[in-house]
């Protein structure tokens, strides 16, 4: 599964990584898996970080599949 990170998450984990996930898992399970593999990003992944699939924000209960591309957004800010 391809995972994209932005902002401070990209700085600590990288812009794009590929991870092996079970056939299907929830976004919260994916967050836990990433936090284990990337301890530096553990806090960053939890606090106000949104997950997107297909450019749409998804809930932590959303089921992602191994072919999905998931993006994690730290808090955004313009102006």
């Amino acid at each position: 599964m391809k995972i994209h990170f932005y902002g401070r998450l990209a700085e600590s984990v990288g812009r794009e990584i590929e991870v092996d996930v079970p056939e299907s898992c929830s976004v919260s399970e994916l967050r836990a898996l990433l936090a284990t593999e990337y301890p530096r990003a553990a806090n960053a992944l939890g606090h106000r970080v949104r997950a997107l699939v297909g450019d749409i924000v998804v809930a932590d209960s959303h089921i992602v599949r191994s072919g999905d591309s998931v993006e994690f957004f730290p808090p955004v800010s313009g102006g």
Binding site: Y6, G7, R8, A10, E11, F73, P74, P75, V76, S77, G78, G79
Partner: peptide, 30 residues
């Protein structure tokens, strides 16, 4: 427009200077 841009426009901001770089996120006031 500005209140929404500060908290919802899709940007990730960081300040860079002699002391290094730091990420800027919306404040509680924002």
């Amino acid at each position: 427009l500005m209140d929404r841009l500060k908290t919802e426009a899709v940007f990730w901001k960081r300040e860079e200077g002699p002391a290094g770089a730091s990420w800027i996120e919306p404040t509680e006031a924002d």
